[in-house]
Amino acid sequence: MKTKALLLALLISVSSLASAAPSTLNFCTGGEGGFYQDLGKAIGTSITKNTDIHLNVLTTGGSVENAELMKDGDCDIAIMQADAAVTKPLPTDVKIVDGHMEQVYWLHGPSGIEDFGKMEDDAVAKKYAFAAVAGSGALVTVRNWIETDDDYKGAVIVEFDDWYAAAEAVAQGYVKKAGVTVEIAGMLYIGRPGKITSDITEDFGTQILIGEVNDSSFANAKDANGNPLYTACSVDSKLASGLKTSTFGSPDTYCLRAQIVYNNDWHQGDKKLRRGVDKGINSIVKAVR
């Protein structure tokens, strides 16, 4: 009898520990001083206020690194692009909710290609390569698009360490790799409308143009919740961060959501905690949509 009582007490103790609220909220955001960091701070503060939970805001390289950290269990909540959330490995038990809208910019130089869709042409694809920043959300998107449409199979991507180096190659229209000259068609940049990084606009603002993404191949893709992953939109010339457009009016492109991803402890634990998370995310996200 004593053994049964002891076993029951142990089970109750373990159950209590399992349902106890976590003591720390590790929130993975983005680069130092960036919008993801500010958004993560705001959401995290809203969740943890009036609790004993410590908020730990982690600055990261963005969507790709956040997915890796989430998979490794190093962050409880993370912000990432919707296509990163659907293509990068994540824990099996996560909840994903929509955040603010982000815009896909196709940026090219005077000698580049003004329409991303023209890279479907074999003659064009053999001549030009895409520029991309290693580990960026834009690299996730361009790779996803290449996988989505067989006409882009074999497309060449040249990766750079940062946006400045990529923008330099796009502006001059080529880059030398291992002594070989590679012509650059352009690059994708993804961010809030009107928020293109100064690494692109300050030194290359007179050389880089905003083109368009005129390809319907991506319209049927779905996000992790079964909703449209990419939605047709256009680049408002008033929100071009000072860059000029290479097409008349507002270039066609696609938009996608940033999403907030959080793990089991935060969406299936204590009811009060779940409500706090939902309220914290919804109140902040609605303010920035």
Rank of each mutant, 00 (worst) to 15 (best):
A258R: 04
Q207M: 11
K244H: 08
K126N: 15
K222I: 08
K272C: 12
Y36A: 14
A21K: 15
K195G: 02
Y189C: 03
F130E: 02
G30I: 08
V57N: 03
A134E: 10
A165W: 08
N56R: 10
T141D: 11
L6R: 15
A138S: 07
G280D: 06
G73P: 11
D265S: 14
L55W: 08
I96G: 02
S283V: 05
R143A: 03
R289N: 11
A20G: 14
V97T: 04
D265K: 13
R289T: 00
L8R: 12
V175H: 04
K4M: 14
I208Y: 10
Y152S: 06
K2V: 11
L188W: 04
D98P: 04
Y189L: 03
I190Y: 02
F204S: 06
A219R: 03
S111G: 06
T87G: 01
I200T: 00
L107T: 06
F204C: 05
T253Y: 00
K41L: 14
A125L: 14
E147N: 11
T3V: 12
L58M: 09
A131P: 00
Q81Y: 12
L39E: 08
K244E: 07
Y254R: 03
G226S: 08
K271W: 09
K126S: 15
T245W: 05
G173N: 04
V277G: 08
Y164T: 11
T87V: 00
G137Y: 02
A123D: 11
N50Q: 15
D149V: 00
A18N: 11
G61H: 09
V277T: 01
F116P: 00
D76T: 00
